[in-house]
């Protein structure tokens, strides 16, 4: 195979792949959800929520952060976090139900204010 042919295949393949990535990335982008809109059918799905930290509880292996929108939502994080009351954070995680209450198992937390 001529090197020019190989280069053409590589360049076209890369451009096609980038285009397809651009198209598909739109469908897996997580839009922000408000706490009040988290329904029973969201259990097991990933959500993104923002809110002000109302309460933080840190134990050895777990942190429980309550964020407020003004509705409250508990976020469980399996790492100690340096978040204080009054911080404004964004959380991405999976919705779970525990003792009738909805909460989020956090995968990612980001400070936004």
């Amino acid at each position: 195979m001529k090197e020019k042919t190989l280069l053409r295949i590589a360049i076209i393949g890369a451009l096609v792949g980038i285009f397809l990535l651009y198209v598909i990335s739109g469908s897996i982008k997580l839009d922000e959800t408000s706490i009040g809109r988290i329904e029973e059918e969201d259990i097991g799905n990933d959500v993104k929520v923002k809110g002000m930290v109302k309460d933080v509880f840190n134990s050895e292996k777990l942190s429980i952060v309550t964020i407020s929108q003004p509705e409250d939502l508990k976020v469980l994080l399996f790492d100690n976090v340096s978040i204080d009351e009054g911080d404004y954070i964004e959380v991405i995680g999976e919705v779970e139900e525990y003792k009738g209450e909805r909460e989020v198992i956090g995968n990612r937390v980001r400070m936004i204010g």
Binding site: L6, L7, I9, A10, I11, G13, A14, V16, G17, I18, L20, L21, I24, S25, S27, I28
Partner: peptide, 20 residues
């Protein structure tokens, strides 16, 4: 499935760049 597609398209792009 969407995440698998992301991974496969990423493999394509990475492979083409790696070839060069």
């Amino acid at each position: 499935l969407s995440q698998l597609l992301v991974f496969l398209f990423a493999a394509l792009v990475a492979g083409c760049v790696a070839a060069l």
